[in-house]
Design a protein around this nucleic acid. Sequence first.
RNA 1: CGGGGCGUAGCGCAGCCUGGUUAGCGCACACGGUUCGGGACCGUGGUGUCGGCCGUUCAAAUCGGCUCGCCCCGACCA
Length: 416
Amino acid sequence: MRMSLLFAPTLKEDPQEAEIVSHRLMLRAGFIRQLSAGVYTFLPLGWRTIEKIIRIVREEMDRAGGQEIFMPAMQPAELWKETGRWDLYGPELIRFQDRRGRDFCLGPTHEEVITDLARREIRSYRQLPLLLYQIQTKFRDEIRPRFGVMRAREFLMKDLYSFDRDMDGLQVSYQKMYEAYCRVFSRCGLEYIAVPAESGVIGGDVSHEFLIIAESGEERVFVCSRCGGATTSEVARCPRCGIPMEEKRGIEVGHIFQLGTKYSEPMKAYFVDRDGKEKPLIMGCYGIGIGRTMAAAIEANHDERGICWPFSLAPYEVVVIPVNIKKERHREEAWSVYEELSQAGFEVILDDREESAGYKFTEADLIGFPIHIIIGEKIERSGMLEIKLRRSNERIEVRRAEVREFLERIRKELVK
RNA sequence: CGGGGCGUAGCGCAGCCUGGUUAGCGCACACGGUUCGGGACCGUGGUGUCGGCCGUUCAAAUCGGCUCGCCCCGACCA
């Protein structure tokens, strides 16, 4: 992609409405724009990062045996009345009527819809276990949307639902998801922690929250450095190891629940077990906030100049910056590096704009491309160009001919 | 919903308290020129329902009332 063609409107100054870092940087770097309180448009760079998160999530859900489906956002009130949540959910549920006056809502979550599907289609224990998931827009009329896409009223979520014949099966599904979540967040290049949690409106008995560790996180967690045990309630010492717990802060990006029969009973989602008896499906549900993961990634990975994307989430991996586009040598080398790396499978941006070098450097830092290739005078003098690693600010001079090999080595390191 | 703050050019702001000719500044934008290794410089130019409505007044961005929107703190959440 050429920078001159990219729709990435950056902001020189901090927008007044944005208080926290991730929100400020997403606006400034041209990743998102706000339409209304808690309602956002993702611009090309922002959407690329979202798609990278989605890809990782999808691969890990599939690997864990999940099958992707797509459920409606528009849901009839009757289903919600069956579980009692039409009244329980309160004003956070966005309700409306169709032209015939029938009540509907915009799904804030999909237990009702999936359970309805399950009760219609699952007859026998032979169909179990079953893991179904979707990546879809959720609607919650939050009392107070804030922090940009961190708590939005319309947001992308991956929600997976497990169906098992008994509690043992649920334990297996739950464990699989737990591990899948760990893989998702480590592949995103994020430091995370899983803590036992309260279940809230979704209900159920056992649940774990997944938190991205970031100083600006709203949640306090206490972590044992020896066994990795973590809790949200304040305890001085690790019960297992007896050593002092370390306090950290985190942002909740995922939550997994063992639901049991909370939805299958009231909605009469039964199957016939091997013994010929009809039993309620044993369910679990597992959510990941896609946009929130993006925001949390920025909270955890930025400096005073801008975003420092983990390699796996960066909208583009490499930016090629000719210091002076009007100099033929800079321009031609930049184009040739750009083409060579693109062909080698890198996601590359060529900053072909007639801007000053400083302007391009500053913007590249702001957007947070992990690797910057700077083509300037050195190319004329010695055939060298400069590779800068955004996060460490490390600068390495590399011969033109060795660039590709060098980057392939870096990529290997950054991805693992 | 309770508490606090803010709406003036695309963005960031000044002006408002103490009403008075053409409503300013920086950035951005357009054109020309000089620049080009850390958000360059000079010149020229365009840009405004002063969030909206009602009122007070000879006169309202400025005073009063209502209203809409946005942000921050609290309960809730992915």
